[in-house]
Every structure is written in C-alpha cells, then in structure tokens.
C-alpha cells in the first residue's frame, strides 16, 4: 500500500506534535519530581506532628513496617521522649466506606490507648458537606483523649458520642468506625508493637555503631 504525499505529511505532522509534547512532558515531569516528593514529605511531616504529642525524635525517620495480614503492611511512626522511650504511635487508618470512596485517616494513639488526635490525609467526600471532616476542628478535636472504653464509638444519630454533620452522616460514621478499628488494632497488638520498636531501634543503633 502506497501513501500519498498528503497522507505522509499528515502522519509526519502528528508524529512531530506528539514527539514535542512527549519530550516537553518528560522534561517537566523530571523537574517537578523532586519538589512533588518534597511537598508530599512535608505534608506527611506536618500531619504526623499534629497527631503526636511533644517528642524529641523524628517519627518519619524511626518509621517501621508492621504486617497486619499476609499482604498488608502498616507504616507506624513512633513518638519518643529524650530517653528513647515510646510515648505514642501514629499510623494511617483507612475507612473504606466513605460517601464516595475511601477516606485515609492519620491517627495518633498514646501507649495507654488514648487518641492523641486525628487528621484526614485524603478523601473524595462532597465539598461543603462531607469534607467538613478535614476543616471542622471542633469535630476533629472531639476525638482527643477518647479510648475504647470511655466513649460510644458511633455518631449521635446511631446513639454514639460523635457529632454527624447536617446533611452528611455517612462520612463521619465511616471515620468514627475506622478510628475505633484503629484503637482495636492497637489494643490487640500493643505488646507486639513495643517489641518491634525495640528491635528496630536496636538494629538501627547496631548499624550506626558498625558505621562508626
């Protein structure tokens, strides 16, 4: 099959346009790669700081991976005092049952099982309704110092302790349930977690000493 000159010109033009566009995108992607990773890291640092008590370590540096099932791992960020003793942990809890899609919640929990604070890290809830979970500081604050025992873990509509929003019940309900599950996870694995922190710290110290 032979192509006419016209057709060749058309194909060539599209090829050149696509080539130029692709190389420009490759360049922009390489330039923004670093800053995007940096922005995400800064965001993570900021969020983690907000859900942990005063600490003297770098929780992101001391992060360790904790397997919760065969294929799922949790990244746990420990807060430690000057002596290196653990004060609290932060990790991301996922609520799969938001109004539209999953909600990711960063929660901090003290060794004694109280919630330090929670922050929403990503969600697709309705702007102006469900997205109150990210902005309503009074509502986010209502989780502070709550434990499995001292609260009823559902929204007020369902007879619990936590407010729903006008026009949005499903979103807060999903968050409350996820945080409760987070506390349950902590209750069941706190001994294990402590052991893990100890092992990780020791391993890190050994490598550091080895490097000396």
């Amino acid at each position: 099959m032979k192509f006419s000159k016209e057709q060749q010109k058309i194909a060539l033009t599209l090829f050149v346009v696509a080539l130029v566009a692709a190389s420009m995108l490759a360049w922009v992607a390489s330039v923004t790669k670093g800053p995007i990773a940096e922005a995400q890291r800064a965001m993570l640092h900021k969020n983690i700081k907000q859900v942990l008590p005063e600490h003297s370590n770098d929780p992101v540096h001391d992060m360790f991976v904790y397997p919760i099932s065969a294929e799922k791992n949790l990244q746990i960020f420990p807060a430690k005092d000057k002596k290196g003793d653990v004060l609290a942990y932060a990790w991301e809890q996922i609520a799969p049952d938001g109004y539209s899609g999953t909600i990711r919640i960063l929660m901090g929990v003290r060794l004694t099982g109280e919630v330090v604070a929670i922050r929403i890290t990503s969600h697709k809830e309705t702007p102006g309704l469900g997205d109150g979970i990210t902005k309503d500081m009074a509502w986010l604050g209502s989780f502070i110092d709550k434990t499995l025992r001292n609260s009823k873990w559902s929204v007020k509509k369902d007879g619990g302790d936590f407010d729903q929003f006008t026009g949005a019940t499903i979103t807060p309900r999903a968050v409350v349930r996820a945080v409760q599950q987070g506390l349950l996870f902590y209750k069941n694995s706190q001994a294990d977690l402590l052991k893990r922190v100890y092992i990780t710290t020791k391993a890190k110290n050994v490598t550091q000493e080895g490097a000396k």
Binding site: V17, A21, L25, V28, A29, T32, P35, A39, Q40, M43
Partner: peptide
Amino acid sequence: AYIVIIASLVTVVELTMNAWMH
C-alpha cells in the same frame, strides 16, 4: 493536534501545582 497540545499543557499545570501548591 490541538488536543495533544492542550492535554500536555494541562499536565504541565497539574504537575506544577502538585509540586509548588500542594
């Protein structure tokens, strides 16, 4: 050709916002 140009520009804006207006 216009769609390729526009889509590329949108991606540039998206990446830029992601990097500096996170």
